[in-house]
Design a protein around this nucleic acid. Structure first.
Lengths: 321, 321
DNA sequence: CCTGGCATG
DNA sequence: CATGGCAGG
């Protein structure tokens, strides 16, 4: 417990790697240098002697954060926030990275020093969307996307497999002004995503986190009445899709612990000084598909004071069995 | 002299207004509210009792300044610079104004307080090019463009007629990276512009100023050898076109006074800290087509310390006869 | 109101 | 290395 013992360096029985296509994008420090690099060339990341680590039993902390553009977030003390949060795994959404423009070298260096490696990231349209999983421990396998190019071409999702769970992070499609993307979002993305998660879940527990771009109930946003069925993120169609996940057994970790907590948001529009007035939305979740997951969940912390984005980081503290 | 006498309130004999199309864009405070407004509705600008002023004999100062985006320049103390320069007429290039986005009201107010009115401006493609003439005295007539839509659609030029001269200001087309626009610039724009000036000059003297986007000779830019025939603004074709103007009798006022002055530039690239090293170009001119113009020209001052743009303002001090 | 990318210089 | 505009949020 807390020591550096590494049991089962090459865990097999839980690995679902065969079920996952080999990532066609590299694992590199913070961002792939070229989309041609292969996973095999991962000496870059870990020396050849290194093998998949197994997360130790005990406290394990995962953070999800929509950074709304990593380049900008870096200028707004991203590193300081990461240091403060000091989690085991950091899931980022809306990195908006583009292959042509790697993040500043000193940032990559800094993260490396803190033992973070970028084990999975996903980019598509330059400057749009993009997700990443930075982890201190090496996953067993990773995957970019959910297996459908229509979604994956925008880098909406990535997955890292650990010994005890799959970790999936997504930037769920925004339904857009005038709900122009609502149909795509609810009828294409959501079902494909559920199918993907279900496939993963055959092998082991799943933690699904990220910017799910929906407020579940009236207590999950300040202006529920004026936004209901009008604004992206609070239409019945979007709520229904979230509920389908809950019906599949996914548990909204925050609500599990704080079923009636109000005014606890993870996103505030940049417009109209919404954040200072706490006119926000709870859009960032940890959904747990884990048997007896309540035993795993130690706490969920909404770091609403952490600046740098229009979303704040959300942390889950796990008690790994 | 210096008093407020207004002779010839409605000067006729020198007016070439008939020769000029009625402007199809409004005269308004700083920028037209809509391209539908007509010149006739100019009560907005001057009370009905006001009439065309005649510039008084004596000192008269005109400034030309490529502001490289007025919105940005305003944030970088445009108003302070205008106050310091305190000229009679201010010719602006690359205002980059767009109809949809009027400049801050307080700026318009401030200029108004200092008696400046926007008597002519010209816009085309939103956020690109654009010229304006701000004047303390009311011109006899104004014109937007030079009468060819190909140029005028980009707001490259405007003209104000005063009693003793026409004032034309232009943002001459940049020949572009790889000189892709050199042909258009030299074979279309330049000849059309000369024809336009020649037409005006039948009626009265012409002062042509602005960002002419050419360095005339080797002493007009720091790196003459490396740029010659390679960079936009210092190709023989562009130089030739400027010389055609000089052959027509236009006098480069600055060079007339300072024929051998070196290191006196009006533009420095934002790249590579060029300005702090004074690696610049002289691209902004006053060209005078005025009989015995040396008697008019008191001085030309390059305000190289005035910030706010990659160009600095250039001032001509006239001794009006 | 804020992002990153774009064309333009 | 800047500009303004753009799509996207």
């Amino acid at each position: 417990f807390g020591s550096e013992t590494q049991e089962k360096p090459e865990s097999q029985e839980y690995s679902a790697s065969e079920g996952l296509p080999v990532p066609d994008l590299p694992i590199s420090d913070l961002y792939p240098k070229s989309s041609q690099e292969q996973l095999d060339s991962d000496e870059e990341v870990e020396p050849k002697t290194a093998t998949a680590k197994v997360e130790q039993a005990g406290m394990f902390r995962i953070v999800t954060w929509n950074v709304a553009g990593l380049y900008a977030c870096i200028k707004k003390d991203f590193c300081k926030a990461v240091k403060t949060l000091d989690c085991d795994i950091l899931c980022l959404q809306e990195t908006k990275l583009s292959l042509k423009k790697p993040p500043p070298a000193e940032i990559a260096e800094q993260l490396k020093e803190w033992k973070y490696r970028n084990y999975a990231n996903s980019e598509g349209k330059a400057g749009y969307s993009g997700t990443a999983i930075l982890s201190k421990s090496k996953p067993i396998s990773v995957q970019r996307g959910i297996g459908k190019t229509k979604h994956d071409d925008f880098g909406r999702s990535c997955t890292a497999e650990f010994e005890k769970f799959f970790l999936v992070t997504s930037y769920v499609p925004n339904s857009g002004r005038g709900l122009v993307n609502l149909d795509y979002r609810t009828n294409e993305w959501e079902s494909d995503l559920r199918n993907y998660l279900t496939k993963l879940n055959k092998d082991k527990p799943v933690i699904y986190c990220g910017d799910l771009n929906v407020a579940h109930t009236a207590i999950d946003l300040k202006n529920d009445k004026s936004n209901y069925n009008k604004s992206a993120g609070y239409t019945q169609a979007e709520i229904d899709e979230l509920e389908k996940l809950l019906e599949l057994g996914y548990v909204d970790a925050y609500r599990k612990l704080y079923p009636a907590e109000e005014d606890c948001y993870t996103f505030w529009s940049y417009m109209g000084g919404a954040r200072s007035k706490n006119v926000g939305w709870r859009l960032d979740y940890f959904l747990m598909k884990i048997k007896d997951c309540e035993e795993w969940i130690e706490d969920v912390v909404v770091h609403s004071k952490v600046q740098g984005s229009d979303h704040c980081p959300v942390e889950i503290k796990l008690n790994l069995p």
